[in-house]
Amino acid sequence: MSEPLGQGVQKWADLLSEKSNGNMKIEIFPDSQMGDKADIIDSMLIGENVCTLADGAFYADYGVNDFGIVFAPFLFDSWDDCWKLVDSDWYKEQCDKLEEKGLKIVSSNWVYGDRHTMTVNPVNNVDDLKGMKIRVPGNKIQSIGFDSLGATSVGMALGDVYQALQTKTIDGAENPISTLYGRKLHEVAKNLILDAHVKNFTTFVVSADWFKSLTEEQQQMLIDTANEAGLYNNEVQAKQEEEYLNKMKEEGVNVVVPDADVMKGFKEKAESFYTHSDEFGWSEGLYEKVKAAMGK
Results as ranks from 00 to 15, higher is better:
147 D>F: 08
148 S>H: 05
149 L>I: 11
149 L>V: 13
150 G>Q: 03
152 T>N: 12
153 S>G: 04
154 V>H: 02
154 V>T: 01
157 A>S: 14
157 A>W: 05
158 L>E: 08
159 G>E: 08
163 Q>N: 13
164 A>Q: 07
165 L>C: 07
170 I>D: 00
170 I>W: 02
170 I>E: 01
172 G>Y: 00
173 A>D: 00
174 E>C: 10
174 E>D: 15
174 E>T: 14
178 S>T: 15
179 T>C: 04
181 Y>Q: 06
181 Y>C: 07
181 Y>N: 02
184 K>D: 10
187 E>W: 07
188 V>S: 12
190 K>A: 14
191 N>G: 06
191 N>I: 01
195 D>L: 08
197 H>L: 07
198 V>Y: 14
199 K>V: 12
200 N>A: 06
202 T>A: 13
207 S>P: 01
207 S>W: 00
207 S>F: 05
207 S>Q: 03
208 A>N: 07
209 D>W: 01
210 W>T: 03
211 F>C: 11
212 K>V: 11
213 S>K: 13
213 S>M: 08
213 S>W: 01
214 L>G: 14
214 L>W: 04
215 T>P: 09
216 E>C: 12
218 Q>W: 09
221 M>L: 12
222 L>Q: 01
225 T>D: 03
226 A>W: 12
226 A>P: 12
227 N>A: 05
229 A>K: 02
229 A>H: 03
230 G>I: 00
230 G>F: 04
233 N>W: 05
233 N>Y: 07
235 E>C: 05
235 E>I: 09
236 V>C: 09
236 V>Q: 04
237 Q>K: 11
239 K>A: 13
243 E>Q: 15
244 Y>G: 11
244 Y>C: 10
244 Y>L: 06
